[in-house]
């Protein structure tokens, strides 16, 4: 044992690293773990994500269900939810949802902001390619791709290639992965949006395209279990093509302390995406750092 003379910060830091060590005993560890997982279970998030994806999958495949949905949309109009059109409008919103559903593939840019941002690492934007069952997300910083995520809902496979660190991680058995890719999925977003109370914004030109928009402040857009404090979200659709041109959401959480915003734009709809783009491209020499167990 060496007596510490207190004249060396490095030794002091070693003492902190070595001795400030607290662990839960087995019983406490298990109890806390169960409490946390129960809390997650009771949010309903897992079930809702899966059921939403399942619903969407069924809708896309079953023409009878499509008719039923159409009937429901007509009923919505009758009770005053102006879902189908505005006066003099060229946009029929129910058709937008159907058109988006039928899109073979879509490419778009996603930009996210958070304030205050407590982190030093954040991407400028991501370029996302979505087909009905696969997705590829290329994240950029300073014009360079820093990482690429491949997702295959069919095989339940996720691979993240980190070019910054020349490494990759993969999960080839993600059984609990829902089919849906979440709220950033433009298809999912349209469905959720139309299910909320919303108002028409009229027309404006975005990137040279005449668009018509709708806006919601209904926090149910993000689910009912953990809604934000407040929310403003808009979708702008091309009058000519009937496809979304820009989607954006800004919401406040934590009693106004946190502002989160995301924008998806630069859409290319109904694109026949080359399957090869979804094939994970792991350059030679990259290290597989996948954990032994998920």
């Amino acid at each position: 044992m060496v007596t510490w003379t207190m004249n060396d910060n490095e030794k002091l830091k070693d003492i902190i690293r070595d001795n400030l060590d607290v662990r839960a005993d087995e019983r406490t560890y298990d109890h806390m773990r169960n409490t946390v997982l129960d809390a997650h279970e009771h949010t309903g998030r897992t079930a809702s994500a899966s059921s939403l994806a399942l619903t969407r999958s069924i809708l896309m495949k079953n023409p009878i269900t499509k008719l039923a949905i159409a009937a429901a949309l007509v009923a919505a109009v009758l009770v005053g939810i102006s879902l189908f059109s505005s006066s003099g409008s060229g946009v029929v919103w129910a058709e937008v949802a159907q058109r988006v559903q039928a899109s073979r593939g879509v490419i778009f840019r996603l930009t996210e902001e958070i304030e205050p941002d407590p982190y030093s690492q954040r991407v400028d934007f991501s370029i996302n390619h979505y087909s009905s069952t696969k997705a590829r997300l290329d994240r950029y910083i300073g014009g360079q791709i820093v990482n690429t995520m491949y997702n295959d809902c069919g095989t339940k496979t996720v691979i993240l290639v980190d070019h910054s660190h020349k490494s990759y991680v993969q999960d080839t058995n993600a059984k609990d992965m829902p089919d849906s890719l979440g709220i950033a999925d433009p298809n999912n977003m349209i469905e959720r949006f139309l299910a909320t109370e919303h108002r028409e914004l009229g027309q404006k030109t975005i990137d040279g395209v005449l668009c018509e928009g709708i806006e919601t402040t209904d926090t149910a857009l993000y689910g009912t279990r953990n809604p934000p404090d407040s929310l403003t979200a808009q979708i702008w659709v091309s009058v000519e093509t009937g496809y979304p041109v820009r989607c954006e959401s800004e919401h406040i959480r934590d009693d106004g302390q946190k502002r989160l915003k995301w924008v998806s734009d630069q859409f290319q709809w109904d694109v026949e995406l080359d399957e090869q783009i979804f094939e994970p491209d792991v350059p030679a020499g990259y290290i597989d750092i996948s954990p032994d167990e998920w």
Partner: peptide, 10 residues
């Protein structure tokens, strides 16, 4: 309980 949205960035 907070799995909605984009809270966890960075």
């Amino acid at each position: 309980q907070g799995t909605d949205g984009f809270e966890v960035k960075g």
